[in-house]
Amino acid sequence: MSSRVRILANLRRRLEEGRPAAERAEGVAARLRLAGAQTAPRPAASRLEGAEALARFEEKLRAVDASVSHVPGFSSLPQALAEELRARNLPAAVRMGEDFDLVSLDWSGLEATRGPGRIEEPATLSRAVCGAAETGTVALRSGPANPVTLTFLGETHFIVLRRSEIVPGLEELWARVRRSGAQPRTVNLVTGPSRSADIGGVLQLGAHGPVAVHVFIVDA
């Protein structure tokens, strides 16, 4: 008998006393039907909309040591990014994926390369599915448009999303992720740059992942 069979048989024997198998199956099916619907209490702070959501998103990003700026449209992103790189004394180069919104832009002022992350990546750029105002969290889908390694190998990680993609809380974030297409290999929720307090109990940024995260909000 395989371990799988033995473990399941043992569980069934123990659970059977409380609830027969058919009831258990129905209980699970009923719960899974709730996927995408509200089943638990949520903080009032996760329900802000519009301008309030935008303000909270920015406030929470700063609270987790990320920075944030606005660009009027995608077309002004390359220049805004070039300026950010200059201000940070970084080379005029960025690594990104094949995201439609990004590849169609004029990157001639920068050395913009495409593909997965390499061992040293001073700056990387990702296109988020959405951002949750609740905690300043952005959601990224892995794939050709957004290679997952760019999220972790960039010394400075730039993330771009539209203003209309800022949602109140985790519930709306999941709704957008579910709508964004087939389930990717990873969905990455990112809340600020990487950090550790392991050495001396003092919080330091840039543990293994990015030392800095900057979010561009595209207003139009």
Partner: peptide
């Protein structure tokens, strides 16, 4: 309020 990385993984690379 939220840890820095919350990663949901499924299956191998597509």
């Amino acid at each position: 309020e939220m840890s820095v990385y919350t990663t949901f993984s499924s299956g191998p690379r597509r």
